[in-house]
Design a protein around this nucleic acid. Structure first.
Length: 656
DNA sequence: CTCCTATAGCTTTTT
DNA sequence: GCTATAGGAG
């Protein structure tokens, strides 16, 4: 039995135990947001709501995992396991796999659809742009995908696009053909039986909108809906939540408008500011006591966020000790900046016995990590960089995963393109070009064409024909083994495809490193299979694995390692975390605040919120650094100190 | 078809 | 500093 009164503050207790209707919890930084969410889940279960009828949504895998773990500590494993908890994308993917097939009319997918990551989407778009003979410099994959993503996040399907304001803006920017690309892109996704990240939301919304029966089934099933980081929801996510809570209005949204930092991917801060308009009966609680940081940190953070205009009023305070002032340091080069930081870490470690685990280096942009990484390596201080190029984005990993994807879903064009000639097997560009043309003119998938040699036997040399047949046999062989357990099939694919041989017998250092990564992936699959089997899930196929892994992008692959290490990450990646000793580095004008994000006034406010997030990660000490010159693009460029530094109230600052 | 080299172009944040 | 692409030689 949990003693809620004892373990929660008064307002936390109220927020946890209110279950009569829609609820908005404004949770200031470090005020126990996750605590409220997890205790609330436990409370609901205790009140008798079946755990599989509780829906808890988060934004990142990291947040989802933390929540799972913490709920697991409060209620029995069996109960916590049943709670429907995860990211918007992963939960909707799961539902879609169960429902799409019943809904073939509008969404011609099968439950085995693959999920395209940004790379896959961009190369699909690139191909379409080429096919349409548009200027690839004007229609860059990232621009086009950005527009399409924006459309999807606003529930604008291709047929609605021309009437939307998006289209007007496109015409203004001379990219009026985005609309045509969007149409083609949609069909290419369908042909590949693939959805991109945004489709997971859009298609969920479409099903609920067009099929009242299915919507009601889910709306009735979920007795209670909890949403973490509500300030980061975009329009379509809000709409799906409305679809799910239309009748019972049982929603608890937790968030902090001051920490909304995802406008660039469509987050609408208005969602939290105007929550009451969507749910008129809303009861609001404000968690204003910060348990994490010193008075100085909270004071400094307040003085920063004060400059923003649109926000929900709150008075964040701390009852902790006053603590040390925030230190400012400015180096003349990026090298001296990193030397200062690393010297400080060493000093604290040696003379004050601070663990390396206590330190975090936070920056606005990934590339800033380089000088710190170099310095840490020079000094042999253990460190880890989070984010950046993640494990699952490495070429060798994507290649192997593409094999798995093709075996599970041969329509997956992007995966097929990756592996068709890797390792090189004599099916080169010109062959692929011919097959592609054939597939476009006959409206068949690449795989379909490949499977019917009669269609192209006159077009390619006999030699190549044989190579294609060999490849087909290889893949078909694996497909027939799909009922095997994921690990043994994966290992087989790894060898029979030639990947293992290619990488392990190479004399190049980097290839061998890649082989290590491949081995690590296989070990991960083994762990996955063992884990799931322990829970009694029976035979775990490659299909099961690929479903799980396609939404894992970042730090989900925690390394089991007991040696303390310094953590390096972007401010975005640091959200939800806390560290005793924080360095906010690269505090230079145009770097942070970032010039590129200044396309509207609200961006400046978002940059400021980002700074607020960075400072409030600190438990005890915060050091802010910058540099007069940085080595960038092969030359040294000068930088001015960030204007944000002036925003901090003087009383909280000391210069080094 | 493959492998190698040169070069251009780009580095905001994430599912 | 890194990657994606183009062009050339074998």
């Amino acid at each position: 039995m949990i003693d809620y009164r004892k373990e929660l503050s008064e307002v936390q207790y109220k927020a946890v135990t209110y279950t009569d209707g829609p609820e908005l919890v404004i949770a200031g930084a470090g005020s126990g947001k996750t605590r409220v969410l997890t205790y609330k889940v436990a409370y609901l279960i205790e009140k008798g709501i079946p755990s599989n009828q509780i829906l808890a949504l988060t934004f990142t895998n990291k947040a989802a995992n933390e929540m799972k773990e913490r709920v697991g500590r409060l209620v029995s494993r069996e109960q916590s396991h049943k709670v429907v908890m995860g990211t918007f994308h992963s939960i909707f993917a799961r539902i879609l796999r169960n429902e799409v097939e019943l809904y073939k009319g509008i969404l011609p997918y099968t439950g085995k659809f693959t999920i395209y990551d940004t790379d896959d989407s961009e190369s699909a778009i690139k191909k379409i742009v080429k096919e349409m003979c548009l200027d690839p410099k004007v229609y860059t994959p990232s621009t086009v995908l950005g527009r399409i993503s924006k459309a999807k996040n606003n529930m604008i399907t291709p047929d609605l696009y021309p009437q939307s304001s998006l289209y007007e803006a496109d015409v203004e920017r001379n990219i009026g053909m985005v609309y045509e690309i969007y149409k083609k892109y949609k069909f290419s996704l369908i042909a590949s039986n693939a959805m991109d990240f945004d489709d997971l939301l859009l298609n969920m919304w479409l099903i609920f909108k067009n099929n009242e029966k299915i919507r009601q089934r889910y709306a009735r099933h979920f007795k209670y809906c909890l949403v973490d980081e509500y300030q980061d929801t975009n329009l379509i996510q809000k709409e799906i939540l409305l679809q799910l809570t239309k009748e019972n209005q049982m929603i608890c949204a937790v968030g902090d408008d001051a920490q909304s930092i995802y406008a660039f991917r469509g987050a609408i801060i208005r969602n939290i500011l105007n929550f009451r308009e969507d749910y008129p009966e809303t009861v609001t609680y404000k968690l204003e006591e910060n348990y994490r940081s010193t008075k100085t940190i909270v004071g400094a953070a307040n003085s920063i966020i004060q400059k923003n205009t649109r926000q929900i009023f709150k008075n964040l305070y701390s009852n902790n000790s006053k603590g040390e002032r925030i230190e400012l340091f400015r180096g003349d080069t990026d090298r001296s900046e990193s030397r200062f930081v690393i010297d400080r870490i060493k000093e604290e470690n040696v003379y004050r016995k601070r663990s390396y685990n206590d330190f975090a280096v936070l920056y606005r942009q990934n590339w800033l990590s380089r000088s710190f990484e170099d310095a840490l390596r020079r000094e042999h201080i253990p460190y880890r960089i989070f984010g950046g190029m993640s494990f699952y984005q490495r070429k060798e990993i994507k290649d192997l995963l593409s094999y798995f994807r093709v075996v599970v879903n041969p329509s997956d064009e992007q995966a097929l393109r990756r592996i068709i000639n890797y390792p090189t097997r004599g099916i080169g560009d010109s062959t692929l070009q011919k097959i592609t043309e054939l597939s476009i003119s006959s409206e068949k998938t690449l795989w379909d064409i490949f499977s019917h040699p009669r269609l192209y036997m006159n077009l390619v040399p006999k030699k190549t024909l044989g190579k294609i047949t060999d490849f087909l046999h290889l893949v078909r062989g694996w497909q027939s083994q799909l009922n095997q357990d994921a690990y043994s099939l994966a290992t087989r694919i790894c060898w029979e495809s030639g990947i293992s041989k290619l990488l392990s017998t190479s004399s190049k250092e980097e290839e061998l490193e890649k082989y290590e990564n491949v081995q690590e992936l296989l070990a991960g699959i083994k762990a996955f299979v063992d884990d799931r089997q322990k829970e009694g899930d029976g035979n775990i196929s490659l299909d099961d694995y690929i479903r799980e892994v396609s939404l894992l992008t970042d730090a989900d692959k925690e390394k089991e390692d007991n040696t303390p290490y310094v953590k390096l990450m972007t401010i975005h990646a640091s959200k939800g975390l806390e560290f005793p000793y924080v360095f906010i580095v690269g505090m230079d004008e145009d770097v942070f605040p970032c010039r590129q994000s200044f396309d509207s006034i609200s961006s400046m406010e978002e940059e400021r919120r980002l700074f607020y997030v960075a400072v409030t990660r600190t438990k005890q000490r915060c050091v802010i650094t910058g540099a007069d010159t940085r080595f960038r693009n092969g030359s040294f460029s000068p930088f001015e100190p960030s204007s944000f530094i002036k925003d901090i109230d003087r009383q909280y600052i000391e210069r080094v």
